[in-house]
Amino acid sequence: MSHHYLGSIELWFSVTAALALAWALIFYPMLAIWTNERFKKWPVRRYLFWFAGVTAAGAALVGPLSEQAHTSFSAHMIGHLLLGMLAPLLLLYGKPMTLLLRSLPRDLARLLSRILNSRYIHFISHPVVASLLSIGGLYILYRTDIFIWMHQSTIVYAIVHIHFLVAGYLFMMSILYADLTPHRYSFRFRAIVLILALAGHKILAKSLYAMPPAGITTTDGEMGAMIMYYGGNLIDLAIILLFCYSWYKATAPGRVVRAI
């Protein structure tokens, strides 16, 4: 039944991904240690979050899991959870934007802050837009021919996987204000969007169980859908805990309430 899996991933993708991951592992601590001279010491836990996030993304992009993902829907789903949900969550708590802003020379930092404040970033980091980009993107991937093309063309494969990571990150940062957040919305609004987005993920997982994407065997499809559903539940739990905890901290008695 796996006649759709024609080509294998070309080498350039693996090499580029491995290089990007290595850069992320090298530059982050370099910037943090370098800026420690001028600013507060960068906390150890942020390094750990960052390294864990890069590792999660790496496991999905290069190595044995990514190779298996080419022939197994279950392996693909594990990769999807790692790359699209777990890695973005961990990377966000490494606060890369804060680190970047304190590392850049003044003019570049101003430019970055102008970009972050731009209407474009405002638009794509709106909770509803970010949810549509990430969860909506999944519906398009699994319910159109893109899923077949992804297995035939390395370029499509690369775009899909970069989208997983970027859209996942955008979603996490639109809901959890862990890093610098220029455009803010109330807890109540974000809670509603979060519930709807996570529901979208669950609904898609169950519908994939009922009807797997083209070219996937029933058993593999059912297994992959269960992984998506229950694995997603675990990460949902972490997101909801972090979200509620940030509400708990922000509304502490005696604390001056911020604009949101």
Binding site: I195, L196, A199, K202, I203, K206, I240, C244
Partner: peptide, 16 residues
């Protein structure tokens, strides 16, 4: 499936 997903998602959030 649709209703079940919504309800489950809401219930997860509600518990926590």
């Amino acid at each position: 499936i649709f209703a079940d997903g919504l309800l489950n998602s809401f219930a997860w959030f509600a518990a926590i």
